[in-house]
């Protein structure tokens, strides 16, 4: 059977979360203004960002010739990254960093839930023969190193969990980097993810689709682009509703560094004035 019970279950669960999110907040509230970044928030946000980067990239690494395989990367990179993210989240909650904790949960939630919408398009394309494979099932087989026997229910579940985690990581990266945006901000992010996917080893080499999938006709690009656009739009709608504050990371970091530099210049100047007055 091309579409399995696990496929359908994950999609239905994800769509339920999307519906709940959109129904609970029918319109997006006005975001709070960007508050200054602290060094603690920057450090914990940086740790969460590293963790979010590991999830999707282990697949790219595993399917790059000469690199370690998925079982090893899953054990020694993916699991530690989950622990790192958990620690950063708990530390942020204890330190009362509301903005960071909000961005972490919304990023994970919006990214994972929107993956279900991506899957509706992806699975439809796969059933019609446009896609080269059912990727989450392949992820499971790769993680369990059981290519010879093919997928099992357990490998399908683990593959789907990984697939949704990758979606969550992209959502997390977006909310940590950009914060609150209108829905179309995440749409641009979805298109960028699509572009990245279409030129990296998992698709180009492992699935032998060539750059932008064009080696096997335009079907892959059309289905995949539509899926990522749908992912971006839904993720954007959820982010617009649930991320509380404005403020993108580069701007906040710049403000923090500039503020620290100004503070140190001012304090050294006042120090000189004090010394002169003492003399």
């Amino acid at each position: 059977m091309l579409i399995t019970v696990v496929d359908v279950t994950f999609v239905l669960a994800g769509l339920t979360f999307v519906t709940i999110g959109l129904v609970r907040r029918k319109s997006a509230p006005e975001p709070e203004p960007a508050l200054p970044l602290t060094w603690a928030e920057l450090s914990l946000g940086g740790a969460a960002l590293v963790a979010a980067g590991i999830g999707p990239n282990i697949l790219v690494v595993a399917l790059t010739p000469g690199m370690p395989e998925m079982p090893a990367l899953g054990k020694y990179a993916l699991l530690p990254s989950l622990a790192l993210l958990g620690l950063a989240w708990v530390a942020a909650a204890i330190a009362g960093l509301r903005r960071l904790t909000n961005r972490i949960w919304v990023g994970i939630y919006a990214g994972a839930a929107a993956t279900a919408v991506l899957d509706v398009v992806r699975l439809t394309g796969f059933s019609l023969g446009f896609m080269p494979g059912n990727m989450p099932r392949m992820f499971g087989v790769l993680l369990f190193d059981q290519m010879a026997v093919g997928p099992s229910t357990i490998s399908d579940i683990i593959g789907y969990l990984y697939h949704y985690w990758v979606g969550a990581c992209f959502g997390l990266t977006y909310t940590l980097m950009v914060g609150w945006t209108r829905w179309w901000g995440a749409l641009i992010w979805g298109v960028l993810i699509e572009l990245g996917m279409m030129v990296t080893p998992p698709m180009v080499i492992a699935m032998d689709t060539g750059y932008f999938g064009l080696k096997q006709g335009p079907g892959i690009l059309i289905v995949s682009l539509t899926a990522h656009v749908a992912y971006g739009v839904i993720m954007g709608l959820l982010i617009q509703r649930y991320v509380r504050s404005r403020g993108h990371l580069p701007g906040l970091v710049w403000q923090l560094l500039w503020g620290s530099a100004r503070h140190s210049v001012l304090s050294s100047r006042s120090g000189k004035v004090n010394t002169q007055s003492e003399i």
Binding site: L2, G133, M147, A148, V149, G150, P151
Partner: peptide
């Protein structure tokens, strides 16, 4: 080793 071609190929849409 057991190579299950049928199951393996189901991942890439071959029945």
């Amino acid at each position: 080793a057991t190579i299950d071609h049928q199951n393996m190929l189901s991942m890439v849409g071959a029945s």
